[in-house]
Simulated assay, not measured.
Amino acid sequence: MLFGKKKEKVHFNPGNRDDGVDENFVEETVNKIDEDDVEVVLKNEENIDKKFSGNNSLSKYMELGRIMVSMLKDVKNGRYKNIPWFTIATVVMALLYVLNPMDIVPDFIPGVGYIDDVAVLTMGVGWIESDLHRYLDWRLENDLGI
C-alpha cells in the first residue's frame, strides 16, 4: 500500500478537455505507477530541480516541480492525506518523464530539448490543478510555506 493508502484503479476523465490525449494510454500508464516509482522521484529531487534551473524561462516549471515533490513528501510522511491516487500517479508520471534524458525530444538538443518535458509537466498539472491548489492552501493553513 502506497503511503498507507489503497491504490485504486484510475479511470481517466479530464472533463471537457480536448487536448488530443489518448485516454486509454493515460489510464494504462497511471495504473502502472507504483511505490517504487514514487521513491525514484523522491530520490531524484535534486536532478529534477537541476533540469530546469539553468534557464530563467523555465523557472516556473522548476517551481512546479518543487511543489509536486513537496506534495509527495508530505503524503509519504503522512502529513497530507487529502489526495487521490490519480494525483500521486500523475505527479510521479510527469516527473519521471522529466528525469528521462532520452525522451521524445532528447534534452541535449539545444533550444528545443526541454519542449516535451515542459509539455508533459504542463499537461499533468492541468489534470491535477485543483488538487495542487488544495495542497497549497493546506500548506498555507498549516503555515508550512513552500
Rank of each mutant, 00 (worst) to 15 (best):
M1H: 09
K7N: 10
E8R: 13
H11R: 06
H11M: 05
R17P: 04
D19S: 00
D22I: 03
D22F: 05
F25K: 06
E28L: 08
E28M: 05
T29V: 08
V30C: 04
V30G: 05
N31P: 08
D34H: 05
D37M: 11
D37A: 13
V41A: 06
E45D: 10
I48G: 08
S53I: 08
S53D: 13
G54W: 07
G54M: 06
N55P: 00
Y61D: 12
M62V: 03
M62G: 14
L64G: 02
L64M: 15
G65P: 04
I67Y: 13
V75Q: 05
K76W: 02
N77A: 12
N77K: 15
K81M: 08
N82Y: 11
I83R: 07
P84T: 04
W85P: 03
W85E: 13
W85A: 02
W85G: 00
W85I: 14
A89S: 15
A89Q: 05
T90P: 04
A94W: 01
L96G: 05
L96W: 01
Y97T: 01
M102W: 10
M102G: 00
I104P: 00
I109P: 00
V112N: 00
G113I: 05
Y114G: 08
D117W: 03
V118H: 03
A119H: 01
V120K: 07
L121T: 01
T122Q: 14
G124T: 00
W127A: 00
E129Y: 12
L132M: 15
H133I: 14
H133G: 07
R134C: 00
R134D: 13
R139Y: 02
L140W: 07
E141S: 11
E141A: 13
N142Q: 11
N142M: 07
D143Q: 12
L144Q: 14
I146K: 09
